[in-house]
Design a protein around this nucleic acid. Structure first.
Lengths: 200, 200
DNA sequence: GTCTATAATTTGATAGAC
DNA sequence: GTCTATCAAATTATAGAC
């Protein structure tokens, strides 16, 4: 077997027989997102991305001229997917309790399905060291989260209380992802989520 | 004025007339801690540290042989200081409410006095990309936090409820620091902290 | 304690051929 | 789209002089 016959790492880890072939740009983004969610923005390099796909770093620059462009594209895609999943999960929900449960479940799945924290949780922490365009996209994600949560709050609450509780829910779940992943204990996330839901 | 007469950045920013002179090792740690808390572990380099003090990077290696050693020393010092401040603040506290308020206040001060998130919040997020010794030290910090919180819970609660609420408090405050700093809005932290305290 | 000097590696990025 | 070739800069780290 020649070296060329060895499949790039992405395929060894993330695919199975019958999988559709994602295009190169998509695979690059999958690989980069995973690295960032595990180790942060600086944990991804064009060279390592290229190696994972079996191409050269110059080819990665064809898809994303600068690293900053990759970062923004990742946050945008992540945000779209997150809210798509959230809306689907919250579709039948009629009560504030059900909406909040759907919200918590969406974050839980983000954590467990990737065994990594939220992309924006990581980039949000690193925000001061990131290109402006990236940290700006992250802030947009958080603002959208807060707006969704405010709308999901019980109708009786006054606006100030809604805002305060929305901040609490988002903060608690983001922190719970970090803590749970750091301590390698999903019960940490579940415990925090339970208290969040009980506080409604 | 010669170039040598220009004081290194640390002194321009962090000192005032009458300040005691911290030793080089301490200043290096102050500078490194600030960089990490703003941009993450990879945001600090031996060269930039050296520049900030007006020395050479080889001299930084005299104090910390490897970057990993610096990381561990930072977490240990941070942890000691955190609990020293916490114990002082919680000194007169007799009720669970007072203890929790002291705990929240300690985190709030960590955020506002540095305009940066918790050192361990940052390193906790990046944990998968860090040297084992560093992420291990961070985990120790979190475990100590949870133990302190469990002990601070109302006596009536059963052990499982104490553990769950402790996880929630730590997660919520860590997330609140991240979110508040990212959105540059201290009211986000305060709102989350209020809900945390009200939930007791 | 601090320096010079240096090594080995990695990184982000570009020009231009195919 | 992917490549070769290349660059300038930065990074971690060490050896040894003063």
């Amino acid at each position: 077997m020649t070296l060329a016959a060895v499949k790039p790492i992405y395929w060894q880890v993330n695919t199975q027989v019958g999988d559709q072939v994602p295009d190169t740009r998509e695979i690059l983004m999958d690989t980069a997102e995973r690295s960032i969610r595990l180790g942060g923005y600086n944990a991804v390099s064009f060279r390592e991305l290229a190696d994972a796909l079996g191409i050269k770093s110059a080819s990665v620059h064809y898809y994303f001229r600068k690293k900053e462009d990759l970062g923004v594209a990742l946050v945008d895609r992540y945000s779209q997917r997150f809210f798509a999943v959230l809306e689907k999960r919250a579709d039948g929900a009629r009560t504030a309790e059900a909406l909040l449960d759907a919200y918590c479940q969406t974050y839980r799945t983000a954590l467990t399905s990737s065994d990594a924290i939220c992309l924006c949780g990581m980039l949000g922490a690193e925000t001061s060291g990131l290109p402006d365009a990236v940290s700006s996209a992250v802030r947009t994600f958080f603002r959208a989260n807060l707006e969704w949560l405010v709308d999901a709050m019980p109708k009786g609450l006054d606006p100030a209380a809604k805002t305060a509780r929305a901040s609490h829910v988002l903060a608690a779940l983001q922190g719970a992802m970090m803590l749970s992943h750091n301590m390698d204990d999903i019960s940490v996330f579940d415990a925090a989520a339970e208290v969040v839901k009980a506080g409604l």
